[in-house]
Amino acid sequence: MPEPQPVLAPPATAAVFLVVTVAPGGEDTVRDVLTDLPALQRAVGFGAPDDRLTCVAGIGAAVWGRLFQGPRPAGLHPFRELAGERHRAVATPGDVLFHIRSRRMDLCFELARRLCTRLGDSVAVADEVHGFKYYDMRDLLGFVDGTENPVGQAAGAAVFTGAEDPRFAGGSYVMVQKYLHDLDAWEALSTEEQERVIGRTKLGNTELPEGRQPGDSHVALNTVTGPDGEEREVVRDNMPFGSVGEGEFGTYFIGYAREPGVLEEMLENMFLGRAPAAYDRILDFSTAVTGCLFFAPAAGFLDDLPDRPAAPRPAAAADPVPDAPAAGDGSLGIGGLKGAPVR
């Protein structure tokens, strides 16, 4: 398998999630930055190797054909908005994702700053979120996040494309959503009721037993299985974020998968329900305000990008229609019609 981007980087304590849209005419600049991404990362992180600065770049469906000739990844398409009876998974603009991680926020910040400097007016920032580690890998709701991520070879099998799409082997689909929490409403619940919403114990971080696991819990609805009965896995690298002054508290969801269907099935269960649940009860306290789908190609793809699509040729200008012959010159203008378009 081709060398992937650092999708399976070790857990970080800081992250910047940067989503941009590409302006018309900005394609060449974006291509140059994608190719130079490893060098930019090294330039920022070379003096602090133990802090493990990494960056993954993902490309959206709307811009793929503007950046690269040839086929696109088999499963790449725009984020599919979902409208349930009570809650909505919105689709928002996003052409390129930069997922920056480290043990230090200053390194994440500096790499994001240099990326934006290089990109300049070729892009517009659609969303920027600075995430942080909260206690022992908990979200702002107080529960440990990411417990069920696969590890080792199982993680690679879950997130990297293979023989099913050989042109893009070693890549990964990545979905992002920004959720805002109503902490006042959440904290009005008892710990036992919070545990029933999530499906795990708050202190011990263990799943509720089968007899006590509500069908509309977050854990129950995010467990999906394939035709063979095996659980379909993804790798999440969610981060809390917030602004005390603005009263904004949330979780930035980011999930990597070998194919987008597993991520989309989880969202369908959450927003549209799966019998007997009408929807995931966590949505009564967490509102999705963004939604994008990207493909993070293998590192070698970024090192040697496919050619950019040829610019469309301008339409040939029609020959001018000849002036009408001057009155009384005895000519019918026949000579002047040579080569003129037929009317």
Rank of each mutant, 00 (worst) to 15 (best):
A288M: 11
R343C: 04
R258F: 04
R308S: 10
D228A: 13
L302F: 08
H218Q: 06
P276C: 07
I198R: 00
D284T: 11
K133W: 03
A257N: 07
V174N: 06
V129P: 00
L76W: 01
E27K: 09
P260F: 11
L8F: 12
P320V: 04
P2C: 05
V262N: 04
L18A: 10
N222T: 15
G45Y: 00
A316H: 06
T92P: 01
A61Y: 12
V244Q: 02
P4T: 09
I282T: 07
R200G: 03
Q213Y: 09
T223N: 11
D50K: 14
E233R: 15
A48F: 02
V96E: 02
G300P: 03
P4I: 13
D280T: 11
K338V: 11
E248N: 10
V20I: 15
E230I: 14
G45P: 01
E110Q: 03
L115Q: 00
A275I: 03
R313P: 01
D182A: 12
E233C: 10
V224P: 00
D121G: 01
T287E: 09
Y179M: 05
M105K: 13
T117V: 12
T13C: 02
M270C: 10
R88A: 03
H130I: 05
Q41T: 15
E195A: 12
A288S: 13
A185Q: 08
A169W: 01
R103W: 06
E268M: 14
G229W: 11
A14G: 02
A74K: 09
V30C: 00
G247M: 13
F98R: 04
K133S: 10
R138I: 04
A316Y: 03
V244A: 12
Y252N: 10
F17P: 00
T29Y: 12
L107N: 04
S102P: 02
A275S: 14
L140Y: 04
E265Y: 08
P4C: 05
H130E: 08
P325I: 15
T147L: 07
V197M: 05
S217P: 15
N205I: 02
P4Q: 10
E207Y: 12
D139P: 02
P209Q: 11
G250R: 06
V197E: 12
G229S: 14
K202S: 01
V176W: 04
K202V: 00
V224N: 01
G171C: 08
N205W: 00
A277Q: 01
G215C: 13
L305R: 11
Q41I: 14
F295Y: 03
Y173V: 13
V174F: 06
L293P: 03
L37D: 07
T13H: 13
L189P: 03
E110R: 15
G26H: 10
T92C: 04
A15L: 00
G247E: 05
L180K: 00
R103L: 09
G335T: 14
K178D: 09
R313A: 15
G75E: 06
P260R: 05
R113N: 14
Q41G: 02
R42V: 06
G156C: 10
D145R: 08
T147W: 01
A83V: 15
D184M: 07
Y279R: 04
L76S: 13
Y135V: 02
